[in-house]
């Protein structure tokens, strides 16, 4: 089975994630899209690791998962507190930090 399909899937997932981050307003959805992008990259890493017969890419994929887990903890906490303060989870509403 060719590795190409994995890479195609990865590209599609990444694109979906990117478009989601750019177009969606709900912070939870944006967050999920980011996870999607990370996992698309993980898929690429694992694919190449398999293709080359080495473990490097797989190990990096584990690292990405760990970092993603930590990021989820912090990110969700931020989204929660923003929601409590402003009664909204829209990323466009959280715009106080500007010129």
């Amino acid at each position: 089975m060719s590795v190409d399909y994995y890479l195609y899937l990865s590209a599609i997932l990444f694109t979906i994630g990117t478009v989601g981050v750019l177009t969606r307003r709900n912070a939870i959805v944006v967050f999920m899209c980011i996870e999607l992008m990370l996992n698309a990259v993980n898929l690429t890493l694992v694919t190449f690791a398999r293709m080359n017969g080495t473990l490097d890419g797989q190990i990096i994929a584990f690292f990405v998962m760990v970092v993603a887990a930590a990021e989820v903890v912090v990110g969700l906490a931020i989204i929660m507190s923003i929601f409590r303060a402003r009664r909204s989870a829209s990323v466009d509403d959280a715009n106080l930090l500007k010129y």
Binding site: L22, T23, V30, V91, N95, L97, Y99
Partner: peptide
């Protein structure tokens, strides 16, 4: 140049992209 800092997270994301 300061005007570029709009406060909209999505526009930052676009510029990163």
């Amino acid at each position: 140049l300061r005007r570029a800092q709009t406060g909209f997270a999505r526009s930052y994301a676009l510029s990163m992209l």
